[in-house]
């Protein structure tokens, strides 16, 4: 069951190594990463489930956008919405029929980890059967390259995707802060029992929360397919990166996930610029720094001790 090594999302050819370029790359990578981490941390905060299938959900989002925008030729925004809806429905179904009963029936809460791994296999199998294993790409949504005095070189589509990602993050935070659903979800994350005593329908909001987390993964998949394309093998490495971001920021904390995403994005951008002469050791360095960091602060930047 060895999956082929996949190109990692987001580190295609980034030109130039000026300071401005590195910063621009960092923001671009960070915005994508933050969105992936947000979904993972949301699911973790609500249900204490480590969603191994998050990377696969991201890949499905990419494939849905590929099918609707790349194959059927419908407008990009329709494809993006379809990705979100597909994943939200998928997430809700998975929560309602798999996670909820297992959480209730198991004597150990670690069983959910096994279930999540099983779902990751299942989604991989479905992706293989429905979309095949080839690398897929879509036509560019905007053409042209921004060239600011050869200090920052960035294609327009990357800038657009980055802006869309940042807008989505802002929309998500506002939703969590100002809507009734968002308040209920935050209450649930803080204290499940207390939320239930205050009249929050715990089962219903767990499903909504899981759907929302899955939707975020689908949205990032839909956004990034325009730049990196999508293939079957991307799921696992994406999950691993998402875990790293969540560990940096602290599991189950929304601001932590955003911070973790941007920190990893910047570290990767800087690492690729500075360390590329020594070979592919960026992630090695990142991991060693992560271990040292966690030795000093095990709960991450903003996490509660022992999550």
């Amino acid at each position: 069951m060895l999956t082929p090594r996949a190109p990692r999302p987001g580190n295609g050819k980034l030109a130039g190594t000026s300071m401005e370029q590195v910063l621009a790359n960092g923001i671009y990578l960070g915005a994508q990463y933050a969105m992936i981490a947000l979904g993972l941390t949301l699911i973790f905060a609500l249900m204490n489930v480590l969603n191994f299938a998050h990377g696969q959900m991201y890949v499905i989002g990419g494939f849905v956008t590929y099918t609707i925008y790349g194959q059927l030729g419908l407008p990009y925004i329709v494809a993006l919405l379809a990705s979100c809806v597909t994943l939200a429905v998928l997430g809700a179904l998975i929560e309602r029929f798999l996670f909820a009963p297992v959480i209730k029936g198991s004597s150990r809460e670690e069983s959910t980890m096994l279930l999540a791994a099983g779902i990751a296999f299942l989604l991989d199998a479905l992706i293989l059967l429905i979309f095949g294993e080839k690398q897929r790409g879509v036509p560019k949504i905007v053409n042209g390259v921004l060239n600011w005095d050869f200090r920052v070189i960035m294609p327009y589509d990357r800038i657009l995707i980055c802006a869309l990602a940042i807008l989505s993050i802002i929309a998500f935070i506002s939703f969590m802060h100002y809507s009734k659903t968002g308040r209920a979800l935050r209450a649930l994350a803080q204290d499940r029992t207390a939320a239930q005593l205050m009249g929050v329908d715990v089962d219903r909001y767990s499903t909504i929360g899981f759907a929302l987390g899955a939707m975020l993964a689908g949205l990032v998949g839909g956004l990034l397919v325009t730049i990196t394309g999508v293939n079957l093998g991307m799921g696992g490495p994406t999950s691993v990166k998402a875990f790293m971001m969540v560990m940096i920021g602290g599991a189950g904390v929304i601001s932590g996930a955003i911070a973790g995403g941007f920190i990893l994005g910047f570290m990767e951008a800087i690492g690729l610029a500075v360390l590329s002469q020594y070979g592919d050791i960026t992630y090695l360095v990142i991991f060693v720094s992560l271990m040292i960091f966690l030795a000093i602060r095990p709960q991450g930047l903003m996490g509660k001790p022992w999550g």
């Binding site: 480590l50 691993v240 875990f243 790293m244 599991a251 592919d280 992630y283 991991f287 992560l290």
Partner: peptide, 25 residues
Amino acid sequence: LPILRLRGVYFAMITLVLTQVVTLT
């Protein structure tokens, strides 16, 4: 020595990352 201080999902996640890192090494 450093990572065994972590618990629960934190330990699970960092050991998962460890596999990836050994492959990269």
